[in-house]
Design a protein around this nucleic acid. Structure first.
Lengths: 383, 383
DNA sequence: TCAATTACTTTTGCCGTAAAACTAACTCCA
DNA sequence: TGGAGTTAGTTTTACGGCAAAAGTAATTGA
C-alpha cells in the first residue's frame, strides 16, 4: 500500500500546535488536545478536520477504559508517511539512520572516514545516504549533526574533531546527495530530539548533558532550545570539576574534558593498571571493585554530580537528560553522582529528576533526523 | 491638581502589551510601538484610543528631528498617577521608598529593627509606611522584598537573616497597614525591576547577580523571570570559587559567601591588617595599593569573574546586571573580574556585556515597588 | 506651491474564536 | 431493558480582533 505524503507546510499557529501535539504525544483525543492547548471543543473539530482531510492526521482507534461517556476517538499521525535520514559526523566515521516522522529508526549504516578532508568526508556521507536510501523508500530530507560551530546555510565555522574551519558543508552535501539538507551542532540536535520525543517532551525547562569524546550541554526554556552565536563552542567542555584532577590538552586541571570524557576514564584506568582497557572494561572493573578503576570512575561520577548541581543552580531546569556514548557512567557511579550533587546543591532544594538515554549509536543520528523533520515539516518553534 | 487614577486592570494581550510598552519605553510613538509589537497602524489606533480615553496613557509631545513626513505624537503614561511603596527588610532595619508608576523614588524612610520578632518587625514596617504616606499622597499598594523563601499569600517560609520560618507576613501586614501588599524574594524583586526599568528592559535573556550580605542570582529568559519552588533558597550563595579560600559558616572553603560578600571582604581585610575597617575603607585601601587589601579584593574580583563565567556558560544570558550594596567591587576589581572570566570562559565566545547598578540603598526598595506595580496594575508576564 | 514622505485615522471585509445547541456513544442502575 | 447521567465531538451562531486599503494630516525639500 502506497503511503500518500501530504504537504506539511507550517500552518497557522493553532493548526500547527494541534499537528505538533499529535506528533509528539499521539495517539491522543480531540478533547485531550483541547484541554492541553486551551482551545474549545468546536475549535478542535474545526482545526483537526482539514488536517485529517489532507492526510496529515488519521483517526487511530478509540479510548477503551470503561468510563462513562462517549469514548474518545484518538488522532495520530502516520509515522511512515515520511522518511528522513539523520547523520552523525565524528572525527573517525559517519553514522547514519533512516527514520520515520517520529524519528524511530528504520535502518542504520556507517562508514569509517579514510580522510578528514571535506571532499572525502562528503564522499563518505554520500555512501551512507546511498546505503540507507536503498533500504528505505522516498527520503524527504537529511539532517546532519556535527560537533562544533555551525552557522547559517550549513557553513561549518569550526569542527575541532575534524580540524575544519569555514567549510560550506551544506552546499556540498545538497550537491552530492540531491536532497534538502540541514546541518546543526550535534548537541543542539540531540536536545531537539529530547524536546520532542525524549524525556523533555512535556517539560517547560530542562537541560541536557552528553558524555562522550567531549562533554555537551543543551538547555530548553519556555519550550525552545536556547541557542546563541556561541552554541557549538562547547561551553561546559572544560568546566572546572576537580582542582586536583588530571590535566587536559588545554592545560586545565580537573576540567570536564580531563575527568568525564570517554578518553579521560579509559586513559586514567589504563595508566593506573599499566595495561590498555576500553571504556566498558573500565566500568566493569569499577563494578568488580578494582580499586584504581573504582576511584577514577567515582571521581568522574562526583564531578558529573557537581556539574549537574551547577546546571540546577544556574539554569533551574525541571529535569536533566543525560546521554551520549559515555552515559553508562551515570549508572555505574550513581552514588558518586549523588554525592557530587550534594556537595554543591543546597539540601533544602527540590530533588531534580535525572533521565538517562540509551547511549546507543543511533541517538545522535535521531537528533539529526529531528532537525530535518523540524526544518522541512513543521517549524522549529512551539506554536 | 488632583490626578485621576484610572483602573489599570490587565486587559487583553495586545492592549496590555501596548500599555506595558509605553510604561517601559515611553515616551514612544504609535508607529514605533506598532513596529516593536508587530501590529498594524490601524491596530495601534484601535488599541491606544481606549487607553488614552481612560486616562492610562497621554499624548506627550511630538518627535522633533527634522525628518520629512508627519511628526510622531508620543504616548506616555502619567508616572505620578499612582504611587507605591517598596520596602526592603534586612536583618537589622526596614528600608522604604515611595515611588511613582515607573518606580522612580519620590521619598524614602528607614527604621532600625529593635527586635526580629515578627510583631516587632511589622511595627517597624508600619512606621516606615506611615512616614512615607505622610509625604506622598494616595498610595495604591505596597511591595516587600525579603531575603529568603516566600510562598503564596505572602507566607515567609524561611528568612535566614531574620531567623524566621513560616510567618504569615502578608496577612499581618495587610491588617497593620490597610493597603494591598505583595511580598516576594528580594532578588526576584530586584530582577523584576531590571526587567522593566533597568539594563534588561529590552533583553530577551539576562542574569542578575547581587553582592551584599549574601550573593543573589536572578535569571530572565523569554522575557520572564525564572522562578521555581527553590527560588529564595539562594542557589549561588555558596557557589565554589576558590579551593584555597576562606571558610564560611557552613564549612565551605572558598564559596561565594566566604569570598564575595561584604563581610567576607571586611573581615578579610580587617584580619590581615589587624584593625577594623569597613567595606568602603577596604576598597579604598585596595585602590591605594595596600597589599593585603589589594589581594583580598582581587581574589574576590577573580571569584566574581568565575561566577559570571559560569552563569554565561550555563544560562546563556545576553547581558549580566550586577548590583547590591557590594557592587563597588566590580569597578575596583575590574581587572580581576575580567581575569576570572577568562579563566573559565572560552576565548572564542562573544563578549558578555556587564552592567552595574548604583548600589544605593533604594534599589532593593524599587524592586519591591515594581512587584507591587506588577501585581496591582499590570500582570507579571509579558503579553 | 506642490510632490514626497511619514504618521495616524477610518472603513471594510475576513477570519478565528468560543458559546450554545445539538448529536453520539457509552456506563450504570432501577 | 430503558432511561438518566456523563463525556466526546459536531454544527451553528454571534462576536471581536485583525490587517488592508483608503483617507486625512503634517511635515520637508525642491
Amino acid at each position: 500500500m502506497r503511503i500518500r505524503t501530504p504537504p506539511w507546510t507550517p500552518g497557522s499557529g493553532p493548526s500547527n500546535a494541534v499537528a505538533l501535539e499529535v506528533l509528539i504525544n499521539g495517539p491522543i483525543s480531540r478533547s485531550e488536545i483541547a484541554r492541553k492547548l486551551d482551545l474549545s471543543a468546536g475549535s478542535l473539530t474545526r482545526l483537526s478536520t482539514p488536517l485529517i482531510e489532507s492526510g496529515l492526521l488519521v483517526e487511530a482507534g478509540e479510548r477503551v477504559d470503561g468510563r462513562a461517556g462517549r469514548p474518545s476517538r484518538l488522532l495520530d499521525i502516520v509515522p511512515e508517511s515520511r522518511h528522513f535520514i539523520g547523520l552523525k559526523l565524528t572525527g573517525d566515521e559517519v553514522l547514519g539512520v533512516a527514520t520515520d516522522l517520529r524519528a524511530s529508526v528504520l535502518a542504520s549504516a556507517e562508514v569509517t572516514l579514510s580522510s578528514r578532508e571535506p571532499a572525502s568526508v562528503v564522499g563518505a556521507i554520500s555512501q551512507v545516504v546511498a546505503a540507507l536510501r536503498e533500504r528505505v523508500a522516498s527520503v524527504t530530507a537529511v539532517g546532519v549533526g556535527i560537533g562544533g560551530l555551525v552557522a547559517e546555510h550549513g557553513v561549518v565555522r569550526n569542527a575541532p574533531f575534524l580540524g575544519w574551519a569555514d567549510i560550506e558543508l551544506g552546499a556540498m552535501l545538497e550537491t552530492a546527495i540531491g536532497l534538502p539538507t540541514v546541518i546543526d551542532n550535534d548537541v543542539t540536535a540531540f536536545t531537539e530530539y529530547e524536546r520532542w520525543f525524549g524525556a523533555g517532551r512535556n517539560a517547560d525547562r530542562f537541560a541536557v548533558l552528553t558524555l562522550g569524546a567531549g562533554i555537551g550541554y543543551g538547555l530548553v526554556v519556555g519550550g525552545d532550545v536556547i541557542v546563541n552565536e556561541d552554541s557549538g563552542i562547547g561551553l561546559v567542555g572544560h568546566w572546572p570539576l576537580d582542582p586536583f584532577g588530571p590535566v587536559c590538552a588545554s592545560g586545565h586541571r580537573g576540567c570536564a574534558q580531563s575527568v568525564l570524557t570517554l578518553s579521560a576514564i579509559v586513559q586514567g584506568v589504563s595508566t593506573a593498571l599499566d595495561r590498555p582497557v576500553n571504556y566498558d572494561e573500565a566500568l566493569d572493573l569499577a563494578i568488580a571493585g578494582e580499586p584504581a578503576a573504582r576511584r577514577i570512575v567515582d571521581d568522574a561520577g562526583r564531578g558529573l554530580g557537581k556539574l549537574i548541581a551547577a546546571v540546577a543552580n544556574l539554569a533551574m531546569p525541571q529535569l536533566v537528560v543525560l546521554g551520549g556514548e559515555g552515559v553508562r557512567l551515570v549508572d555505574v557511579a550513581a552514588d558518586a553522582v549523588q554525592e557530587g550533587m550534594r556537595l554543591d546543591r543546597d539540601p533544602r532544594t527540590t530533588p531534580l529528576p535525572l533521565f538517562t538515554t540509551s547511549g546507543d549509536n543511533t541517538e545522535w543520528c535521531r537528533g539529526a533526523a529531528v532537525i530535518a523533520i523540524q526544518t522541512y515539516v513543521l517549524g522549529r518553534h512551539t506554536a
